[in-house]
Design a protein around this nucleic acid. Structure first.
Length: 511
RNA sequence: GCACCGUUCGUCUAGCCAGGUCAGGACGCCAGGUUUUCAUCCUGGUAACACGGGUUCAAAUCCCGUACGGUGUACCA
């Protein structure tokens, strides 16, 4: 059942790949919408033509697809409030900018970018900051200072102009944030922001407010970087005499070490992805790694991300999307920024990998084998997966934990040789070969029985025998239950490896 | 500089709004146990209320200040 009054949106600008902070913002919006039976809208904020990057919008859509975050309305879905790309809504914004001018809440400004830059520099040299505010606008070239006829002349001359918001003077703006509570700002410290650019496009502030109103957005859930412009947005709603949505400003994701927010560079430097999917910049050709390509499962990625800045209030840690929706609440979102922790992300991936069925894992592992040109033969891959999956965090690590199922060791770990290949080992292993040679039933249980009986009869040390045996079969002190391994590789391969091992390691002299 | 936001173990966090618990959990790390090895797993341990003042019988919790951090201060979003 839909609650038509609850409507939230995620509104990225297509300037490149989506950062995981953006994914988290979208996730919280999605969870909030689902939890409350509302709608989730994807709107593309492409009002900056200079920063537009081809492929970015497709990337965003694909990333959400991979994550399992679904939209009800938006660029790929359509809907009754479209178009959902701001560049296609150009004309709408002009009307609203005009309306603000008519009602005296905005004005035309004719100062060029160069003129303003000059002013900024001049102010800076006097250790002051230039702001286009109530004081400064009195001395600048705009429809407040110029006569009506002059303004009309410039406008008709096809000269460039922008529309600026006329920020009210000395007014206390009181805002309510769902996460932070009451926030107060005096308009005296605010400037007259540009609402409409000279290229005919609106700025974020105008487009955002107009669209949120027109699209009947009930809750604006966005990153904390927008909190400083909330007073402007609130003033805009007031100027239009529109009802305001509720606002929630999410804390930022911080770099794992040092200062500042998480950036692409940190990922490169510390070796973890900052983007959900791999991305190749169309201009520089530079490629950035992605969680998907690095082998994270989407459910692990989402689980990890959801808990970075939010928690259910109890001690649960594992959530699938459905459980997240059930548990989510905006007032359990924290106020302070969180540092990304790769160890914990890997731990989540481990958990989800172990939870996967052996069959599902074999499908993934078969791809790994194929890429290595390994023929799995008739081996029961699912069984092997069951033996090794608990030892890895990623599918890509499965090979090093299971390669000995597919090929004989070509070297013997020196550490293990030193520790486990004793003076008696050579003879004992020769003896073991003769014990195994007549065995026809090579199932794990049977070989285990046979070997253990032999060990007991001879009163050999269990550890000594098994470790030497493992060294010959695996080449190192690792791997699952040894009798399971030899069942998989079979009798011939087992004996072959033993012979070869004896040849290579030889008899260790007593010292 | 100015404005706003924030600050509990190394990290993610519970507790704060409605003051009174040895400040709880998880990751990591360390130790022990299980095991033929490694890993898993189990048990235990390590470690935090930024600082200073105030209010109060009592402050992580309420108030003020300081420090530190974050964001913003573009014809970017």
């Amino acid at each position: 059942m839909k609650n038509s009054t609850i409507r939230v949106r995620f509104a990225p600008s297509p300037t490149g790949p989506l950062h995981i902070g953006g994914v988290r913002t979208a996730l919280y919006n999605y969870l909030f919408a689902r939890k409350n039976g509302g709608s989730f809208i994807l709107r593309i904020e492409d009002t900056d033509q200079n920063r537009f990057v081809p492929g970015a919008e497709e990337y965003i859509v694909e990333a959400f697809n991979w994550c399992g975050i679904e939209f009800d309305e938006g660029v790929t879905k359509g809907g009754e409030f479209g178009p959902y790309r701001q560049s296609e809504r150009k004309e709408i914004y002009r009307q609203y900018a005009d309306r603000l001018i008519e009602t005296g809440h905005a004005y035309y400004a004719f100062d060029t970018a160069e003129e303003l830059n000059k002013l900024r520099q001049q102010f800076e040299s006097e250790k002051k900051t230039f702001t286009y505010d109530a004081e400064q606008r009195k001395h600048l070239k705009n429809s407040l200072t110029l006569s009506k006829s002059e303004v009309e002349k410039i406008l008709n001359d096809d000269s460039q102009y922008v529309v600026r918001f006329k920020m009210p003077e000395d007014q206390l703006i009181i805002m309510e944030d769902e996460i932070r509570g009451r926030v107060e700002v005096n308009t005296g410290v605010l400037d007259d922001k540009i609402l409409f650019k000279s290229d005919g496009m609106p700025t974020y502030h105008l487009a955002n407010v107009v669209d949120d109103h027109l699209m009947k957005i009930s809750h604006v859930i966005r990153g904390e970087e927008w909190l400083p412009s909330l007073p402007l947005h609130v003033s805009l709603y007031d100027a239009f005499r529109w009802d305001k949505p509720k606002f929630a400003h999410l804390p930022l994701l911080l770099k794992p070490d040092g200062k500042g927010k998480l950036s692409k560079r940190d990922g490169d430097r510390l070796g973890f992805p900052v983007f959900p999917l791999q991305w190749t910049d169309p201009k520089s050709g530079e490629t950035s790694r992605g969680y998907r390509e690095d082998g994270y499962f989407p459910e692990a990625f989402i689980n990890m991300l959801a808990l970075l800045g939010w928690n259910p209030g109890d001690e649960r840690e594992f959530f699938n999307m459905e459980e997240l929706i059930e548990a989510f609440s905006i007032d359990k979102v924290g106020k302070s920024g969180s540092r990304f922790d790769q160890e914990k992300a890997n731990w989540f991936n481990h958990h989800y990998l172990v939870e996967k069925s052996n069959e599902e894992l074999s499908d993934l592992f078969l791809l790994v084998l194929k890429s290595k040109n390994i023929d799995p033969g008739k081996k029961n891959i699912a069984f092997i997966m069951g033996l090794v999956k608990e030892r890895v965090n990623f599918v890509s690590e499965l090979w090093e934990q299971s390669s000995f199922f597919f090929k004989a060791p070509n070297e013997y770990d020196p550490q293990t040789v030193k520790k486990r290949w004793k003076t008696d080992s050579f003879g004992q292993m020769q003896e073991l070969i003769s014990i195994l040679e007549p065995v026809t039933d090579f199932t794990s249980d049977n070989t285990e029985n046979t070997v253990k009986t032999w060990i007991e009869q001879k009163e050999y040390g269990m550890g000594a025998i098994m470790n030497a045996f493992r060294l010959l079969i695996v080449g190192a002190a690792k791997g699952p239950h040894l009798f399971d391994i030899i069942e998989v590789i079979g009798k011939k391969e087992t004996l072959d490896r033993m012979h070869k091992g004896l040849e290579v390691l030889g008899k260790k002299e007593a010292n």
